[in-house]
Amino acid sequence: MPLYEHVFLARQDLAQAQVDALAENATKIIEDNGGKVVKTEAWGLRSLAYRIAKNRKAHYVMLELDAPAAALAELERQTGINEDVIRYMTIRVDELEKGPTVMMRKGDRDRGERGPRGDGDRGGFRSERAPRGEEMEA
Rank of each mutant, 00 (worst) to 15 (best):
A15G: 14
Y60Q: 12
M89E: 06
T79Q: 10
V37W: 01
P68L: 05
D32P: 04
D119T: 15
P68E: 13
A67W: 02
D94Q: 07
E95Q: 15
V93C: 02
A130S: 14
L3H: 05
R122W: 02
D66N: 15
Q18T: 05
M62G: 11
L72W: 08
L72V: 15
D108W: 05
D110C: 08
L72P: 15
M89D: 06
D66E: 15
L3Q: 08
Q18F: 00
G107S: 11
Q16K: 15
R122I: 13
V7T: 12
E41I: 01
R92W: 00
V37G: 12
A73T: 11
D108R: 15
G124W: 01
A17G: 15
V93Q: 02
G80D: 04
E24W: 02
A15E: 10
A15P: 13
D13M: 04
A69Y: 05
T40P: 08
D119F: 07
N25F: 04
A49R: 08
R87Q: 07
R117H: 00
E5T: 03
M1C: 13
I29A: 12
G112N: 14
A58F: 03
K57S: 13
Q78I: 08
A23C: 07
P100R: 09
K98L: 02
R77W: 00
L65G: 06
D20P: 04
M103H: 07
D20E: 14
I30L: 03
M103P: 09
